[in-house]
């Protein structure tokens, strides 16, 4: 029931399921996921685009869900940490989640959902050949996610802060999955 023009009904496909929810236009995608839809995987660190804890995939691209308005995402397709295993068509965990466990890529785990969604976005960008700031030849770009080194992964993941400093493990986990198959699985 929409009382006035400051509220909206928003339809999103979230982790493969169609959901419709009434929102105050001021609600961010992050707050809508966490409070309106019970998907508390994406975390709120700074609420200002500075930490990356809220990173989700929106229409296949990684975004800070704290700076996206839910109403503006209407009609979009969202993947949160709750849905990444489903990207591989079942199984309990995505290869990247398993790699995070194997490489001790977390301590408190608060940044982890954002790290994983961000890494999936970053690998997809590399698969398109997109260079980063540290790519030597901007014009040539990179030859897929499998070609990334630790230096590249660190730069591409710099939008995700880890207060526990688990960066070593995070980079190792991303590299392992990127090298395996470009992160597509």
């Amino acid at each position: 029931m929409l009382q006035d023009d400051t509220r909206s009904e928003v339809s999103l496909r979230i982790n493969g399921v169609d959901r419709t929810v009434g929102v105050d236009n001021r609600a961010t995608l992050l707050d809508t996921l966490r409070e309106g839809l019970g998907l508390t995987g994406a975390k709120k660190g700074c609420d200002h685009g500075q930490c990356g804890a809220c990173t989700v995939l929106l229409d296949g691209r990684r975004v800070n869900s704290c700076l996206q308005l839910a109403v503006a995402a209407d009609g979009g397709e969202v993947v949160t940490i709750e849905g990444v295993a489903g990207l591989e068509g079942g199984g309990d965990l995505h290869a990247l989640q398993r790699a995070f466990l194997e490489h001790d890529a977390l301590q408190c785990g608060y940044c982890t959902p954002g790290q994983i969604c961000s890494a999936l976005g970053a690998m997809a960008e590399a698969e398109r050949g997109w260079p980063s700031h540290v790519t030597g030849d901007t014009s040539a770009g990179v030859a897929g996610a499998a070609s990334l080194d630790a230096y590249e992964v660190r730069e591409r993941m710099s939008g995700n802060i880890c207060r526990c400093g688990a960066y070593g493990g995070i980079v190792a986990a991303v590299l392992e999955v990127a090298e395996a198959d470009g992160g597509r699985s």
Binding site: G52, N64, G121, E125, R128, W130, P131, M157, G159
Partner: peptide
């Protein structure tokens, strides 16, 4: 824009400037 092959080839400084700013997730919004 930063990833566009034509921009990278003809205007690499533009790609570099964009890639020097913000973060991967901010740039994709």
């Amino acid at each position: 824009l930063a990833g566009d092959p034509g921009i990278r080839r003809r205007f690499p400084a533009l790609s570099r400037a964009i890639l020097a700013g913000a973060s991967g997730q901010l740039r994709s919004a």
